[in-house]
Structures are given as C-alpha cells and as structure tokens.
Nucleic acid binder design. Structure first.
Lengths: 150, 150
DNA sequence: GCCATGTAGATGATGCGTCATCTACTGGTG
DNA sequence: CACCAGTAGATGACGCATCATCTACATGGC
C-alpha cells in the first residue's frame, strides 16, 4: 500500500465525470421506468433475458451467468418478482436441486408496455448527441475494462 | 410512446457493454473498499468532500449539491456515518434550520487509510490499459451526456 | 407584526444488495 | 454402494436508496 500512483489531472477529471454521469443516468432511468411502468431496471433486465428465449424460461444459474449478478441477489430478486406476479418458479425434472424461472403473462405484458418508453429514454438521455465514433469508442472502452475485470 | 426508435446494433452492443462494465466495476470497487477499510464507496465520497475543505465541515445542502444525491439519502447516510463515528453533526449558528456535518478524527484516519488502496484499485481495474485518448474521450462523452441530463 | 411561501433537514416505511450460512441433490472415486 | 467434494438454490440479517411526509425556521409582502 506504500506510495500509490495517484491519478493525474486528466484521469481525475475523467473519473469524476464518469462517476457523476453514471450515478445520475442510472437514477434517471430507474425513475422513468418505475414511474411509467412500475418496473425497476433490474426487473427489466430479468424480463428481457427471459423473453429472449421463446419458452420464456431459464434456469436461475443461466440467468445469473448472463446478468453477472450475485447468486443471492438473483434469488432474492426472483422472490420479489414472483410475489408481484411477474415470474413463476417451476420444478426442474432433470436436476432435483434445480428450478426454472418462467415469465408469466403479466410479466410479458409488463415488459411489452415498458420497453418503448425505456428505449426512448435511453436514446434521449444517452445516445442522442453522441457521434457514431463516440458510441464505438465507448463499446471498445467497456470491452477493454471488462477484459481486465475477470 | 408509439413507434419508438429502437437502438441499432452498434448502440445495442455499446449499451450492453456499458451496463455490464458499470455494474461489475462498481461491485468490485465497493468490495475492495469494504474489505480493506470498512468503508463503502458512498462513505468514501462523503469523506473526500469533507476533507476538501480544511475546516472539515460543510452544510448538508452543500454536500448534497456536490454529490448530487437525494436529500433524504444524504440525511440517512449521515445518520449511519454518525453512528459509526465517522462524522458528527453540529448546530449552525447563522441559520436556525441548518446544521453542519463535521469529519471526526476517526473519519480522517479512515479515509487516509483507505485512499491509497482505493486509488490503486481504480487504476488497476480501470485506467491501466486505457490510452490517453480513451481517457479524454471518456471525459468528453460523460460531459456530453451530463449536459443533457439537466 | 402577521401570514404565505419557501428552504433545511429528519424520519418511517418499504424495496434492494451483500454476506454468511444452510439444505438438498449430483457425480465421481474408492 | 458408500463417501465426499461440488453445485443449485434459498434464507436471515443488516446496511443502503427512495418516496412520502413532517417539523422548524427564514423571508418577503401586506
């Protein structure tokens, strides 16, 4: 821990700007989604992944792998979503330990209703005003950083 | 809400990569700070802003403006930090409604101990491996987006 | 001086995220 | 087949974030 390499001024500014953008953007997206459709960003992500498979069901561990969430977070979240009727749990025949998470009709209705407004908000708050180069540079940067997170 | 402009493939990939990086990075930073020094990222931010003024004290509304937090989040957070002995509240003579938040000796010790490891982690997980151009491009992007969030 | 409106800040309820821990089943090795 | 390491998932406790609401003081207009 001795003599750390501090951030230089460019890095400082970039880091502060990133943190600030991140916090504000997430807050805004969450609020819009919550207000317009009663879903959180987390609910939205779960439902997107479920609708990606046409059977509308996944094993929790697959969901966990895709979302990169903590296992217990996922489990708690599914419990809450189940309580609200957005998903349902089913037994898994192949693996006695396992389970399936299945999207309900209500879950489908919820995400169908929520998606347009959410995408519109992402576009309005984030992509509008960015150039194509900025978009590809961001993807590149995120991929670089992700590569070092594993 | 009719006929939304969906994200094109570049935007999709960039957005997913960003969300994923964001989530994983925040989680890692939080875990490191928590494990090595018992502080959360939120605690860290509060203490940084307090130590920025050499009196080590601020009005809550200033802190709120700087951090861009919800007022009640800040208030709750300060209560918890106070309970842990990191800050203290003091009466404000000029304004009967107001208060001061003051960093304690223990708070100073905590952030002094935490900072090197945290900065090192930010550097290792984020800045190492990014070019100078990527860093300035990020700052630019974040500033652009922030400009549209107000 | 009195009232209306605004501002500083606290609080209770409730949902979310993490950690530690637990149960139950699987699958390979002797 | 008995054992044991590993994997799938759930749960309780606790700190965090948001919303709605509340108190108390400040301030400007009459």
């Amino acid at each position: 821990m001795n003599s750390p390499r501090w951030l230089d001024p460019d890095e400082q500014r970039a880091w502060r700007a990133y943190l600030r953008m991140q916090g504000r953007l997430t807050a805004r997206l969450n609020r819009q989604l919550q207000a317009d459709s009663g879903l959180s960003l987390a609910d939205y992500e779960v439902l997107v992944h479920l609708t990606d498979r046409e059977e509308g069901r996944l094993r929790p561990y697959e969901l966990q792998r895709d979302l990169q969430w903590e296992q217990s977070r996922l489990s708690h979240h599914l419990t809450r979503m189940q309580r609200r009727g957005l998903v349902r749990r089913e037994e898994c025949a192949d693996d006695g330990r396992g389970a399936y998470v299945v999207i309900t009709e209500e879950g489908r209705r919820a995400i169908t209703a929520a998606a347009p407004g959410h995408v519109e908000t992402v576009r309005r708050l984030f992509f509008d005003g960015l150039t194509r180069e900025q978009v590809t540079a961001l993807e590149r940067l995120a991929a670089d950083v992700l590569g070092r997170l594993d």
